[in-house]
């Protein structure tokens, strides 16, 4: 059809009325995209730009509708000098890296397992996704109960297994709260990682394995020499998606700890939320939002660079 239109255009370019008709004819194509385009610009791009803009302003709930003064980098200076920011940054990095490490490694092992053929395989594979699908508020409430100091089943289980000798107040003390929240997030993320890695495993070329088996390679050799290298691009995608999704952590922090005790589970998105919606200092909130955006952009750029390198090899 596109080719047809092109032909028509060349034929009819001489007649002005026909020409405007053709403009109309290609304009309708844009009408399909227009509603989504407007929505994205107004409700998604504008907010992102607004965050950057407001981060250079003295904006609070008080001067919201009046003129706001430009304050340069004052908001950034405030944030970077705030000890809570450093704690939040450190916790976010610990939270993201340890969550992803365990989600991907356990997800990979499960994917290898579910890549075998056995009865009801697809049923088991997808039922595990329930952990990922459950709204985070529910998961957070549920794990608060599982981690309960007096009657929590996790304390009971760990004591039975001899991992701990007495009940631990997981969410109530500074040393263990972050561990408990990370544990919860790993549980949530495992099935998601498993499904993505499994899809990639199933897309691997079968003949390579065939050839390796004929050449007498052992199972371990096949895994290290064939599966892992072939899976590298897929793992990279899962890794980047994982970083982006894990970085967003908010709901389970709000429900399980509220960032506490004493900032032990304070993370960047929650810190930004508190600045904007508890202190109602939108300038500070905007600065944190912009810092998060910069960090995620950096992650995506590294990803794009790695993909390019991979492709040029």
């Amino acid at each position: 059809m596109e080719a047809n239109t092109m032909v028509h255009m060349e034929k009819n370019v001489t007649s002005p009325s026909k020409f405007s008709h053709i403009i109309m004819k290609s304009l309708y194509k844009y009408l399909f995209v227009l509603p989504a385009f407007l929505f994205v610009v107004i409700f998604m791009l504008y907010p992102i730009v607004y965050n950057i803009f407001v981060s250079f302003q003295d904006a609070t709930i008080l001067n919201l509708s009046s003129d706001k003064s430009f304050v340069g980098l004052a908001n950034y200076a405030y944030i970077l000098n705030d000890p809570t920011f450093k704690i939040a940054l450190k916790n976010t990095l610990i939270y993201t890296s340890s969550s992803i490490f365990f989600q991907i490694s356990i997800g990979f092992l499960l994917a290898l397992f579910f890549n075998q053929v056995f009865p009801f395989r697809n049923f088991f594979r997808s039922i595990l996704l329930l952990a990922w699908m459950t709204p985070l508020v529910i998961t957070g409430t549920l794990f608060k109960w599982l981690f309960d100091v007096d009657y929590g089943v996790i304390n009971y289980l760990f004591m039975q297994l001899g991992i701990i000798s007495e009940s631990i107040n997981w969410l109530g003390q500074q040393g263990t709260a972050l561990v408990a929240v990370i544990f919860t997030n790993i549980w949530i993320g495992i099935p998601f990682n498993m499904i993505l890695i499994l899809a990639a495993l199933q897309a691997l070329p079968k003949d390579v394995y065939e050839a390796a088996r004929i050449d007498g390679a052992s199972k371990l050799q096949i895994f290290y020499k064939i599966t892992l290298p072939l899976m590298k691009p897929a793992i990279l995608v899962v890794l980047v998606l994982g970083i982006i999704y894990t970085f967003k952590v908010f709901d389970i922090i709000l429900i399980m700890t509220g960032g506490g005790p004493v900032n032990a589970t304070q993370v960047l998105p929650f810190y930004g939320y508190e600045l904007a919606f508890v202190n109602f200092n939108f300038g500070h909130g905007g600065a944190v939002a912009t810092i998060i955006l910069l960090m995620l952009t950096l992650v995506s750029l590294i990803y794009l660079y790695l993909v390019r390198k991979e492709e040029s090899m």
């Binding site: 994205v40 409700f43 998604m44 791009l45 504008y46 907010p47 992102i48 607004y50 965050n51 407001v54 982006i244 970085f247 967003k248 908010f250 998105p269 929650f270 930004g272 939320y273 904007a276 919606f277 939108f282 909130g285 905007g286 939002a289 998060i292 955006l293 995620l296 952009t297 995506s300």
Partner: peptide
């Protein structure tokens, strides 16, 4: 790109 932006960042604007 917008897919990676945390919801809480969209919430304030």
């Amino acid at each position: 790109v917008t897919q990676m932006v945390p919801g809480i960042m969209m919430a304030m604007p």
